[in-house]
């Protein structure tokens, strides 16, 4: 399926708005939690990457959905942006195809891995903290 670049560019912008909100929330919870006093997201101590805090967030369905949305938007926005930068160097059509193929494989592969981690992580966290 050929998708015109104007359409892909529109998706690039839509993904940026999704990231602004949801990745902004993620960054605030993970990296500004002390200064913004976001203890509600990290109830087991100040360090948001301690397993208890990670499990607390991971087992919530809302976070599973947010993780998957951030993952999809982040991968598309980042990889399409990188592709645009590389294409400005005016590579041959053959190299363009290689870049597109590589980014597609990377993007889909990491989307599958990240989605699995979000869903399986929720199951693991629910089982361990029940």
């Amino acid at each position: 399926m050929r998708m015109p670049h104007t359409k892909l560019w529109s998706w690039h912008i839509i993904a940026s708005v999704v990231l602004l909100v949801l990745l902004g929330l993620h960054i605030a919870i993970m990296h500004l939690n002390d200064i913004l006093n976001l203890a509600g997201f990290n109830p087991y101590g100040a360090n948001p990457i301690d397993w208890e805090n990670v499990a607390f967030r991971t087992k919530q369905l809302s976070f599973t959905i947010i993780y998957i949305l951030v993952l999809a938007a982040g991968l598309f926005h980042g990889l399409y942006g990188t592709q645009t930068i590389l294409f400005e160097l005016n590579p041959s059509p053959r190299v363009r195809n290689w870049i597109t193929g590589l980014f597609l494989i990377m993007g889909i592969g990491l989307l599958v891995l990240g989605t699995w981690a979000a869903i399986a992580g929720r199951t693991t966290a629910l089982a361990l903290t029940r």
């Binding site: 942006g81 990188t82 891995l113 981690a117």
Partner: peptide, 20 residues
């Protein structure tokens, strides 16, 4: 942007371990 996408690719792999 290039720095963030490089970090994201590694971040996905590292944090996938929470599933285990």
């Amino acid at each position: 942007g290039l720095g963030l996408i490089t970090y994201l690719l590694m971040h996905i792999v590292v944090t996938a371990s929470r599933a285990l």
